[in-house]
Design a protein around this nucleic acid. Structure first.
Length: 416
RNA sequence: CGGGGCGUGGUGUAACGGCUAACAUUCCUGUUUUGGGAACAGGCGACUCCGGGUUCGAAUCCCGGCGCCCCGACCA
Protein backbone atom coordinates (compact mmCIF):
# COMPACT_ATOMS: atom_id res chain seq x y z
CA UNK A 1 0.00 0.00 0.00
CA UNK A 2 1.28 3.42 -0.94
CA UNK A 3 1.31 5.86 1.91
CA UNK A 4 0.55 8.70 -0.48
CA UNK A 5 -2.80 6.99 -1.11
CA UNK A 6 -3.63 6.56 2.54
CA UNK A 7 -6.29 9.14 3.34
CA UNK A 8 -5.40 9.34 7.00
CA UNK A 9 -2.85 11.80 8.28
CA UNK A 10 -0.55 11.73 11.23
CA UNK A 11 -0.40 14.64 13.59
CA UNK A 12 2.19 16.06 15.89
CA UNK A 13 -0.06 16.64 18.81
CA UNK A 14 -2.84 14.69 20.40
CA UNK A 15 -6.19 16.40 20.93
CA UNK A 16 -6.38 17.91 24.39
CA UNK A 17 -9.41 15.83 25.29
CA UNK A 18 -7.46 12.59 25.18
CA UNK A 19 -5.17 11.73 28.03
CA UNK A 20 -4.84 7.99 27.76
CA UNK A 21 -1.73 6.86 25.96
CA UNK A 22 -3.54 4.42 23.70
CA UNK A 23 -6.03 6.95 22.35
CA UNK A 24 -3.45 9.70 22.03
CA UNK A 25 -1.10 7.62 19.95
CA UNK A 26 -3.76 5.85 17.92
CA UNK A 27 -5.36 9.18 17.02
CA UNK A 28 -2.04 10.87 16.26
CA UNK A 29 -1.01 7.99 14.02
CA UNK A 30 -4.36 7.91 12.25
CA UNK A 31 -5.58 4.50 13.45
CA UNK A 32 -8.83 5.62 15.06
CA UNK A 33 -11.23 8.54 15.18
CA UNK A 34 -13.18 9.59 18.20
CA UNK A 35 -16.87 10.25 17.60
CA UNK A 36 -18.05 10.73 21.17
CA UNK A 37 -16.91 9.81 24.64
CA UNK A 38 -16.37 6.06 24.53
CA UNK A 39 -17.22 5.78 20.84
CA UNK A 40 -14.45 5.33 18.32
CA UNK A 41 -14.31 4.63 14.62
CA UNK A 42 -11.54 2.55 13.10
CA UNK A 43 -9.53 3.86 10.17
CA UNK A 44 -7.61 1.74 7.64
CA UNK A 45 -4.53 1.20 9.80
CA UNK A 46 -6.56 0.57 12.93
CA UNK A 47 -8.89 -1.79 11.12
CA UNK A 48 -5.95 -3.84 9.91
CA UNK A 49 -4.84 -4.32 13.50
CA UNK A 50 -8.37 -5.28 14.54
CA UNK A 51 -8.52 -7.81 11.71
CA UNK A 52 -5.16 -9.29 12.67
CA UNK A 53 -6.32 -9.74 16.23
CA UNK A 54 -9.57 -11.27 15.02
CA UNK A 55 -7.69 -13.70 12.83
CA UNK A 56 -5.58 -14.93 15.73
CA UNK A 57 -8.61 -15.33 17.95
CA UNK A 58 -10.59 -16.99 15.18
CA UNK A 59 -7.84 -19.54 14.62
CA UNK A 60 -7.73 -20.38 18.30
CA UNK A 61 -11.50 -20.61 18.60
CA UNK A 62 -11.72 -22.83 15.55
CA UNK A 63 -9.02 -25.05 17.02
CA UNK A 64 -11.25 -25.47 20.07
CA UNK A 65 -14.06 -26.63 17.83
CA UNK A 66 -15.78 -23.27 17.74
CA UNK A 67 -18.28 -22.46 15.00
CA UNK A 68 -18.59 -18.84 14.01
CA UNK A 69 -21.90 -17.02 13.80
CA UNK A 70 -23.10 -13.45 13.88
CA UNK A 71 -26.01 -12.63 16.12
CA UNK A 72 -28.26 -9.61 15.90
CA UNK A 73 -27.55 -6.44 17.82
CA UNK A 74 -31.22 -5.59 18.34
CA UNK A 75 -32.69 -7.57 21.17
CA UNK A 76 -35.98 -9.32 21.83
CA UNK A 77 -37.32 -8.01 25.12
CA UNK A 78 -39.31 -11.18 25.90
CA UNK A 79 -36.16 -13.26 26.08
CA UNK A 80 -34.47 -10.97 28.52
CA UNK A 81 -37.55 -10.76 30.68
CA UNK A 82 -37.39 -14.53 31.11
CA UNK A 83 -33.98 -14.25 32.70
CA UNK A 84 -34.83 -11.09 34.60
CA UNK A 85 -32.19 -9.03 32.92
CA UNK A 86 -34.45 -6.60 31.10
CA UNK A 87 -35.15 -4.84 34.37
CA UNK A 88 -33.17 -1.61 34.66
CA UNK A 89 -32.60 -2.22 38.32
CA UNK A 90 -30.87 -5.50 37.45
CA UNK A 91 -28.91 -4.34 34.42
CA UNK A 92 -28.42 -0.60 34.38
CA UNK A 93 -26.39 -0.08 31.24
CA UNK A 94 -28.86 -0.84 28.50
CA UNK A 95 -29.34 1.32 25.45
CA UNK A 96 -33.08 0.84 25.12
CA UNK A 97 -35.19 2.08 22.27
CA UNK A 98 -38.54 1.42 20.61
CA UNK A 99 -39.92 0.16 17.35
CA UNK A 100 -42.44 2.28 15.42
CA UNK A 101 -45.09 0.06 16.96
CA UNK A 102 -44.01 1.41 20.33
CA UNK A 103 -42.82 -1.96 21.59
CA UNK A 104 -39.44 -1.98 23.25
CA UNK A 105 -36.11 -3.26 22.04
CA UNK A 106 -32.49 -2.59 22.96
CA UNK A 107 -28.97 -2.91 21.69
CA UNK A 108 -27.21 -6.00 22.97
CA UNK A 109 -25.02 -5.65 26.03
CA UNK A 110 -24.06 -9.31 25.68
CA UNK A 111 -25.58 -12.35 23.95
CA UNK A 112 -26.34 -15.16 26.39
CA UNK A 113 -30.10 -14.84 25.96
CA UNK A 114 -30.27 -14.76 22.17
CA UNK A 115 -27.68 -17.52 21.69
CA UNK A 116 -29.42 -19.75 24.21
CA UNK A 117 -32.74 -19.18 22.53
CA UNK A 118 -31.25 -19.78 19.11
CA UNK A 119 -29.74 -23.08 20.17
CA UNK A 120 -33.20 -24.38 21.12
CA UNK A 121 -33.88 -24.69 17.41
CA UNK A 122 -30.89 -26.92 16.89
CA UNK A 123 -30.26 -28.91 20.05
CA UNK A 124 -32.55 -31.87 20.75
CA UNK A 125 -30.49 -34.90 21.59
CA UNK A 126 -27.32 -35.60 23.53
CA UNK A 127 -25.95 -36.35 20.07
CA UNK A 128 -26.18 -32.65 19.23
CA UNK A 129 -23.80 -31.74 22.03
CA UNK A 130 -21.37 -30.41 22.88
CA UNK A 131 -21.48 -27.29 20.72
CA UNK A 132 -19.23 -24.28 20.79
CA UNK A 133 -20.51 -21.17 19.11
CA UNK A 134 -18.76 -17.85 18.86
CA UNK A 135 -18.95 -14.51 17.15
CA UNK A 136 -17.33 -11.14 16.83
CA UNK A 137 -20.07 -8.67 17.57
CA UNK A 138 -20.50 -5.13 18.74
CA UNK A 139 -21.71 -4.74 22.29
CA UNK A 140 -23.41 -1.59 23.48
CA UNK A 141 -23.09 -0.63 27.09
CA UNK A 142 -24.36 2.62 28.47
CA UNK A 143 -21.48 3.10 30.86
CA UNK A 144 -21.83 6.00 33.24
CA UNK A 145 -18.30 6.92 32.47
CA UNK A 146 -16.32 5.88 29.43
CA UNK A 147 -12.61 6.08 30.03
CA UNK A 148 -9.12 5.05 29.08
CA UNK A 149 -9.49 5.65 25.35
CA UNK A 150 -10.49 2.53 23.45
CA UNK A 151 -10.15 0.35 26.54
CA UNK A 152 -13.57 1.04 27.92
CA UNK A 153 -15.99 2.20 25.31
CA UNK A 154 -19.75 2.38 25.14
CA UNK A 155 -19.71 0.49 21.88
CA UNK A 156 -17.06 -2.14 21.31
CA UNK A 157 -16.32 -5.28 19.38
CA UNK A 158 -16.23 -8.45 21.42
CA UNK A 159 -15.42 -12.03 20.71
CA UNK A 160 -17.84 -14.08 22.71
CA UNK A 161 -17.94 -17.85 22.66
CA UNK A 162 -20.65 -19.86 24.34
CA UNK A 163 -20.19 -23.50 25.22
CA UNK A 164 -23.08 -25.97 25.39
CA UNK A 165 -22.28 -29.18 27.22
CA UNK A 166 -24.15 -32.27 28.39
CA UNK A 167 -22.72 -32.30 31.87
CA UNK A 168 -20.67 -30.33 34.32
CA UNK A 169 -17.75 -32.67 33.68
CA UNK A 170 -17.92 -32.11 29.96
CA UNK A 171 -18.16 -28.39 30.55
CA UNK A 172 -15.19 -28.38 32.91
CA UNK A 173 -13.00 -30.20 30.45
CA UNK A 174 -13.75 -27.64 27.78
CA UNK A 175 -13.30 -24.81 30.24
CA UNK A 176 -9.78 -26.01 30.95
CA UNK A 177 -9.05 -26.29 27.23
CA UNK A 178 -10.30 -22.78 26.71
CA UNK A 179 -7.79 -21.48 29.24
CA UNK A 180 -4.99 -22.84 27.11
CA UNK A 181 -6.49 -21.32 23.98
CA UNK A 182 -6.75 -17.97 25.71
CA UNK A 183 -3.18 -18.09 26.91
CA UNK A 184 -2.21 -18.91 23.35
CA UNK A 185 -4.03 -15.86 22.09
CA UNK A 186 -2.31 -13.53 24.52
CA UNK A 187 1.01 -15.13 23.70
CA UNK A 188 0.47 -14.62 20.00
CA UNK A 189 -0.44 -10.97 20.35
CA UNK A 190 2.77 -10.44 22.27
CA UNK A 191 1.50 -10.10 25.83
CA UNK A 192 2.38 -13.48 27.31
CA UNK A 193 4.97 -12.35 29.84
CA UNK A 194 2.59 -9.80 31.32
CA UNK A 195 -0.68 -11.73 31.20
CA UNK A 196 -1.86 -13.93 34.06
CA UNK A 197 -4.79 -16.22 34.60
CA UNK A 198 -6.53 -14.58 37.48
CA UNK A 199 -9.03 -16.02 39.94
CA UNK A 200 -12.07 -13.79 40.11
CA UNK A 201 -15.47 -14.09 41.71
CA UNK A 202 -17.68 -16.69 40.12
CA UNK A 203 -21.43 -17.00 40.20
CA UNK A 204 -24.11 -19.41 41.29
CA UNK A 205 -22.57 -22.23 39.31
CA UNK A 206 -18.91 -21.87 40.05
CA UNK A 207 -16.74 -20.68 42.83
CA UNK A 208 -14.52 -18.69 40.53
CA UNK A 209 -14.47 -17.20 37.12
CA UNK A 210 -11.16 -16.70 35.44
CA UNK A 211 -9.89 -13.46 34.08
CA UNK A 212 -6.90 -12.89 31.91
CA UNK A 213 -5.19 -9.86 33.35
CA UNK A 214 -2.36 -8.01 31.66
CA UNK A 215 -0.12 -6.04 33.96
CA UNK A 216 -0.33 -2.44 32.85
CA UNK A 217 -0.52 0.93 34.61
CA UNK A 218 -3.56 1.89 32.57
CA UNK A 219 -5.48 -1.00 34.10
CA UNK A 220 -8.55 -0.67 36.29
CA UNK A 221 -8.06 -3.84 38.27
CA UNK A 222 -5.72 -4.69 41.09
CA UNK A 223 -4.39 -8.23 41.04
CA UNK A 224 -2.04 -10.17 43.26
CA UNK A 225 0.43 -12.25 41.34
CA UNK A 226 2.16 -15.40 42.40
CA UNK A 227 5.36 -15.31 40.37
CA UNK A 228 6.27 -18.93 41.03
CA UNK A 229 2.84 -20.26 40.01
CA UNK A 230 2.27 -17.78 37.22
CA UNK A 231 -1.24 -17.21 38.51
CA UNK A 232 -2.95 -14.19 40.03
CA UNK A 233 -5.88 -13.47 42.30
CA UNK A 234 -8.15 -10.50 41.79
CA UNK A 235 -8.28 -8.07 44.68
CA UNK A 236 -12.07 -8.56 44.85
CA UNK A 237 -11.46 -12.08 46.16
CA UNK A 238 -8.77 -11.14 48.63
CA UNK A 239 -11.00 -8.42 50.03
CA UNK A 240 -13.33 -11.13 51.34
CA UNK A 241 -11.62 -12.96 54.18
CA UNK A 242 -13.19 -16.39 53.62
CA UNK A 243 -12.91 -16.26 49.86
CA UNK A 244 -9.31 -15.17 50.21
CA UNK A 245 -8.48 -18.12 52.44
CA UNK A 246 -10.11 -20.58 50.05
CA UNK A 247 -8.40 -19.18 47.00
CA UNK A 248 -4.97 -19.07 48.60
CA UNK A 249 -5.37 -22.69 49.69
CA UNK A 250 -6.60 -23.77 46.31
CA UNK A 251 -3.68 -22.20 44.52
CA UNK A 252 -1.25 -23.20 47.23
CA UNK A 253 0.36 -19.87 47.97
CA UNK A 254 0.61 -17.54 50.91
CA UNK A 255 -0.73 -14.04 50.89
CA UNK A 256 2.74 -12.69 51.62
CA UNK A 257 4.23 -14.24 48.50
CA UNK A 258 1.89 -12.32 46.23
CA UNK A 259 2.87 -9.16 44.41
CA UNK A 260 0.33 -6.43 43.82
CA UNK A 261 -0.05 -4.97 40.32
CA UNK A 262 -2.44 -2.88 38.27
CA UNK A 263 -3.81 -4.85 35.38
CA UNK A 264 -6.23 -4.80 32.47
CA UNK A 265 -8.83 -7.51 32.15
CA UNK A 266 -8.28 -8.57 28.56
CA UNK A 267 -10.36 -11.72 28.73
CA UNK A 268 -12.81 -13.51 30.98
CA UNK A 269 -14.19 -17.01 31.05
CA UNK A 270 -17.20 -17.93 33.08
CA UNK A 271 -19.14 -21.06 33.96
CA UNK A 272 -22.83 -20.37 33.50
CA UNK A 273 -24.23 -23.75 34.52
CA UNK A 274 -27.93 -23.81 33.72
CA UNK A 275 -28.52 -20.16 34.57
CA UNK A 276 -29.71 -19.42 31.05
CA UNK A 277 -30.68 -22.82 29.72
CA UNK A 278 -33.31 -23.37 32.43
CA UNK A 279 -35.32 -20.15 32.19
CA UNK A 280 -35.06 -20.15 28.40
CA UNK A 281 -35.83 -23.84 28.04
CA UNK A 282 -32.70 -25.10 26.34
CA UNK A 283 -32.78 -28.80 27.08
CA UNK A 284 -31.63 -32.01 25.44
CA UNK A 285 -32.71 -35.60 25.72
CA UNK A 286 -30.03 -37.79 27.26
CA UNK A 287 -29.27 -41.47 26.62
CA UNK A 288 -31.94 -42.51 29.10
CA UNK A 289 -34.56 -40.39 27.36
CA UNK A 290 -34.72 -37.74 30.06
CA UNK A 291 -34.82 -34.02 29.30
CA UNK A 292 -31.91 -32.14 30.84
CA UNK A 293 -30.86 -28.48 30.80
CA UNK A 294 -27.73 -27.74 28.81
CA UNK A 295 -24.66 -26.76 30.83
CA UNK A 296 -23.22 -23.53 29.53
CA UNK A 297 -20.15 -21.35 29.72
CA UNK A 298 -19.13 -18.05 28.19
CA UNK A 299 -15.76 -16.84 27.05
CA UNK A 300 -15.15 -13.21 26.16
CA UNK A 301 -12.41 -11.00 24.80
CA UNK A 302 -12.86 -7.28 24.20
CA UNK A 303 -11.04 -6.62 20.94
CA UNK A 304 -10.43 -2.87 21.25
CA UNK A 305 -9.43 -3.29 24.84
CA UNK A 306 -6.89 -5.87 23.80
CA UNK A 307 -5.62 -3.55 21.09
CA UNK A 308 -5.40 -0.69 23.58
CA UNK A 309 -3.53 -2.86 26.02
CA UNK A 310 -0.99 -3.81 23.38
CA UNK A 311 -0.47 -0.11 22.70
CA UNK A 312 -0.13 0.73 26.37
CA UNK A 313 2.35 -2.04 27.02
CA UNK A 314 4.51 -1.72 23.91
CA UNK A 315 4.54 1.95 22.89
CA UNK A 316 7.49 4.18 23.62
CA UNK A 317 8.06 7.93 23.62
CA UNK A 318 8.29 8.00 19.83
CA UNK A 319 4.98 6.29 19.20
CA UNK A 320 3.31 2.97 18.63
CA UNK A 321 5.24 -0.30 18.60
CA UNK A 322 3.37 -3.25 17.11
CA UNK A 323 4.19 -6.90 17.73
CA UNK A 324 4.64 -8.66 14.43
CA UNK A 325 1.46 -10.72 14.73
CA UNK A 326 -0.86 -7.72 14.95
CA UNK A 327 0.98 -5.03 13.04
CA UNK A 328 -1.04 -3.29 10.30
CA UNK A 329 1.83 -3.98 7.89
CA UNK A 330 4.85 -6.23 8.22
CA UNK A 331 7.30 -3.85 6.64
CA UNK A 332 7.50 -0.10 6.25
CA UNK A 333 9.54 0.78 3.19
CA UNK A 334 10.74 4.35 3.20
CA UNK A 335 11.91 5.81 -0.07
CA UNK A 336 14.15 8.76 0.59
CA UNK A 337 15.10 10.01 -2.82
CA UNK A 338 11.70 9.56 -4.39
CA UNK A 339 12.61 11.75 -7.34
CA UNK A 340 15.45 9.50 -8.39
CA UNK A 341 14.01 7.08 -10.96
CA UNK A 342 16.66 4.47 -10.20
CA UNK A 343 15.82 4.51 -6.50
CA UNK A 344 12.13 4.23 -7.32
CA UNK A 345 12.38 1.31 -9.66
CA UNK A 346 14.65 -0.45 -7.20
CA UNK A 347 12.09 0.17 -4.47
CA UNK A 348 9.30 -1.12 -6.65
CA UNK A 349 11.17 -4.37 -7.29
CA UNK A 350 11.99 -4.83 -3.65
CA UNK A 351 8.40 -4.19 -2.55
CA UNK A 352 6.94 -6.64 -5.02
CA UNK A 353 9.45 -9.26 -4.00
CA UNK A 354 8.60 -8.68 -0.34
CA UNK A 355 4.91 -8.98 -1.16
CA UNK A 356 5.47 -12.13 -3.20
CA UNK A 357 7.06 -13.73 -0.16
CA UNK A 358 3.97 -12.97 1.88
CA UNK A 359 4.76 -9.66 3.55
CA UNK A 360 2.35 -6.78 3.69
CA UNK A 361 4.16 -3.56 2.93
CA UNK A 362 3.44 0.09 3.54
CA UNK A 363 5.52 2.21 1.20
CA UNK A 364 6.28 5.79 2.12
CA UNK A 365 6.45 7.28 -1.34
CA UNK A 366 5.49 10.75 -0.21
CA UNK A 367 7.52 13.74 -1.30
CA UNK A 368 8.65 14.74 2.16
CA UNK A 369 11.91 15.32 3.92
CA UNK A 370 13.54 12.33 5.60
CA UNK A 371 13.07 13.55 9.14
CA UNK A 372 9.35 13.78 8.75
CA UNK A 373 9.15 10.30 7.26
CA UNK A 374 11.18 8.79 10.06
CA UNK A 375 9.06 10.52 12.67
CA UNK A 376 5.87 9.26 11.04
CA UNK A 377 7.30 5.79 10.74
CA UNK A 378 8.21 5.75 14.43
CA UNK A 379 4.72 6.95 15.28
CA UNK A 380 2.96 4.31 13.18
CA UNK A 381 5.16 1.61 14.67
CA UNK A 382 5.52 -1.05 11.99
CA UNK A 383 8.10 -3.54 13.30
CA UNK A 384 10.53 -3.51 10.39
CA UNK A 385 11.63 -0.43 8.46
CA UNK A 386 13.55 -0.60 5.24
CA UNK A 387 15.15 2.58 4.02
CA UNK A 388 15.87 2.98 0.35
CA UNK A 389 17.99 5.87 -0.84
CA UNK A 390 20.82 6.59 -3.24
CA UNK A 391 23.10 5.63 -0.39
CA UNK A 392 21.68 2.16 0.12
CA UNK A 393 21.38 1.66 -3.62
CA UNK A 394 25.09 2.31 -4.09
CA UNK A 395 26.08 0.03 -1.23
CA UNK A 396 23.96 -2.79 -2.65
CA UNK A 397 22.78 -3.51 0.85
CA UNK A 398 19.33 -3.28 2.36
CA UNK A 399 19.07 -1.26 5.53
CA UNK A 400 16.62 -2.68 8.04
CA UNK A 401 15.73 -0.96 11.27
CA UNK A 402 13.86 -2.67 14.06
CA UNK A 403 11.19 -0.40 15.52
CA UNK A 404 11.22 -1.89 18.99
CA UNK A 405 14.95 -2.03 19.58
CA UNK A 406 16.14 0.64 17.18
CA UNK A 407 18.78 -1.76 15.88
CA UNK A 408 19.95 -1.18 12.35
CA UNK A 409 21.26 -4.01 10.23
CA UNK A 410 22.39 -4.33 6.66
CA UNK A 411 21.72 -7.35 4.51
CA UNK A 412 21.32 -8.42 0.93
CA UNK A 413 18.04 -9.43 -0.61
CA UNK A 414 18.65 -13.12 -0.08
CA UNK A 415 19.16 -12.71 3.65
CA UNK A 416 16.10 -10.55 3.87
C1' C B 1 -24.25 9.06 40.10
C1' G B 2 -20.77 12.27 43.86
C1' G B 3 -16.33 15.40 43.36
C1' G B 4 -12.77 18.25 40.35
C1' G B 5 -11.09 20.46 35.70
C1' C B 6 -12.13 22.26 30.85
C1' G B 7 -14.68 24.06 26.03
C1' U B 8 -11.21 29.85 21.19
C1' G B 9 -9.31 28.42 13.02
C1' G B 10 -8.23 21.16 11.35
C1' U B 11 -4.64 20.55 15.76
C1' G B 12 -2.02 22.72 20.18
C1' U B 13 -2.12 27.28 22.80
C1' A B 14 -2.69 33.03 23.90
C1' A B 15 -5.67 37.31 24.75
C1' C B 16 -6.87 43.17 31.89
C1' G B 17 -14.50 43.58 30.58
C1' G B 18 -12.12 47.66 25.44
C1' C B 19 -8.56 48.32 18.47
C1' U B 20 -9.51 43.93 12.74
C1' A B 21 -9.48 37.60 18.47
C1' A B 22 -2.91 36.66 18.62
C1' C B 23 0.97 32.73 18.09
C1' A B 24 2.64 27.92 16.53
C1' U B 25 1.50 23.91 13.60
C1' U B 26 -1.37 21.78 9.65
C1' C B 27 -3.05 23.15 4.72
C1' C B 28 -2.36 26.02 -0.24
C1' U B 29 1.41 28.95 -3.88
C1' G B 30 6.38 29.75 -5.03
C1' U B 31 11.88 29.55 -4.36
C1' U B 32 15.26 26.47 -2.17
C1' U B 33 16.41 21.89 0.29
C1' U B 34 16.71 15.98 0.91
C1' G B 35 19.48 10.40 6.28
C1' G B 36 15.71 12.57 11.99
C1' G B 37 9.49 16.85 11.96
C1' A B 38 14.63 22.36 7.25
C1' A B 39 14.62 27.87 5.48
C1' C B 40 12.42 32.12 3.24
C1' A B 41 8.20 34.74 1.03
C1' G B 42 3.03 35.00 0.31
C1' G B 43 -1.92 33.00 1.27
C1' C B 44 -6.60 30.26 3.04
C1' G B 45 -8.84 29.10 7.51
C1' A B 46 -12.97 31.44 13.72
C1' C B 47 -20.60 33.53 14.33
C1' U B 48 -14.60 32.13 20.67
C1' C B 49 -19.85 24.97 22.25
C1' C B 50 -25.33 26.53 22.45
C1' G B 51 -29.23 29.79 24.68
C1' G B 52 -30.29 33.72 27.80
C1' G B 53 -28.59 37.82 31.04
C1' U B 54 -25.37 42.02 33.08
C1' U B 55 -22.77 46.16 30.46
C1' C B 56 -21.80 51.87 26.38
C1' G B 57 -18.89 47.38 25.28
C1' A B 58 -18.39 40.05 26.69
C1' A B 59 -13.89 34.91 24.40
C1' U B 60 -13.53 37.15 29.33
C1' C B 61 -18.63 38.32 34.36
C1' C B 62 -23.65 35.77 35.79
C1' C B 63 -27.61 31.87 34.90
C1' G B 64 -29.19 27.51 32.19
C1' G B 65 -28.08 23.71 28.80
C1' C B 66 -24.84 20.52 25.91
C1' G B 67 -20.11 18.30 25.32
C1' C B 68 -15.13 16.51 26.86
C1' C B 69 -11.33 14.85 30.46
C1' C B 70 -9.80 13.16 35.36
C1' C B 71 -10.68 10.91 40.56
C1' G B 72 -14.25 7.90 43.01
C1' A B 73 -18.55 4.66 42.85
C1' C B 74 -20.23 1.18 39.08
C1' C B 75 -18.60 -2.66 35.45
C1' A B 76 -23.17 -10.38 33.46
Amino acid sequence: MLQSKLFTKTRREAPQDEVSKNAELLIRAGFIHKDMAGVYSYLPLGLRVIEKIKTIIREEMNALGGEEVSLAALQNKDLWEKTGRWDDTVVDNWFKTKFKSDSETALAITHEEPITNLMRDHVRSFRDLPAYVYQFQTKFRNEVRAKSGIMRGREFLMKDLYSFSRSVEEHDAFYEKSKKAYLNIFKRVGLSDKTFITFATGGIFSKYSHEFQTVCDAGEDIIYISKEKGIAINKEILDDENAAKDALTEIGVTRESLVEAKAVEVGNIFALGTKFSEPLGLTFTDEAGDAKPVVMGCYGIGIPRLMGTIVEVMADEKGLVWPKEVTPFDVHVIILSQKDPQVCSYAEDLVSSLERSGNSVLVDDRDLRPGEKFADSDLIGIPKRIIISEKTLQSGQIEVKDRATGEVSFMNEGQL
